[in-house]
């Protein structure tokens, strides 16, 4: 298993939650979590892209980019948010048959810590 996909700089560009605020005070519940989709040899590339577009409302370009990242790198972080939010997404992904897990965005290994507040998002 590769560790190459720590935290892509571009995975947060179009999540328009509108609830993300400046993170000067980062308390424990604010630590973001990631939704990770894993590659498998069964799910169709078209289906994975369809799920990303229809469930997350991602553009065709973004959905295809994430799908290819799953396919080529073995996994991709496709969304993040609070633990509850990403867990809800994970159940939805399992409903679609995609292999999804959740993980803390920060800490561990060579984590680049990009979940920490670097100015404003969204």
């Amino acid at each position: 298993m590769t560790l190459s996909v720590a935290l892509g700089p571009d995975t947060q560009e179009s999540t328009q939650t509108g609830t993300v605020t400046s993170t000067d005070v980062l308390t424990a519940p604010d630590i973001p979590w990631n939704l990770v989709i894993w590659n498998d040899p069964v799910n169709l590339m078209s289906y994975v892209a369809y799920v990303f577009r229809s469930y997350f409302g991602y553009s065709e370009a973004k959905a295809n980019k994430l799908m290819l990242e799953v396919h080529k790198k073995g996994r991709s972080i496709v969304a993040h948010g609070s633990k509850e939010q990403v867990e809800q997404h994970a159940v939805a992904m399992h409903g679609y048959g995609l292999w999804a897990t959740v993980e803390k965005a920060t800490g561990g290994g060579d984590g680049s810590g990009s979940g920490k507040g670097k100015g404003k998002r969204g």
Partner: peptide, 9 residues
């Protein structure tokens, strides 16, 4: 197990 996977690796 594939239909009902673990949520944490």
């Amino acid at each position: 197990r594939r239909l009902l996977p673990n949520v944490s690796k």
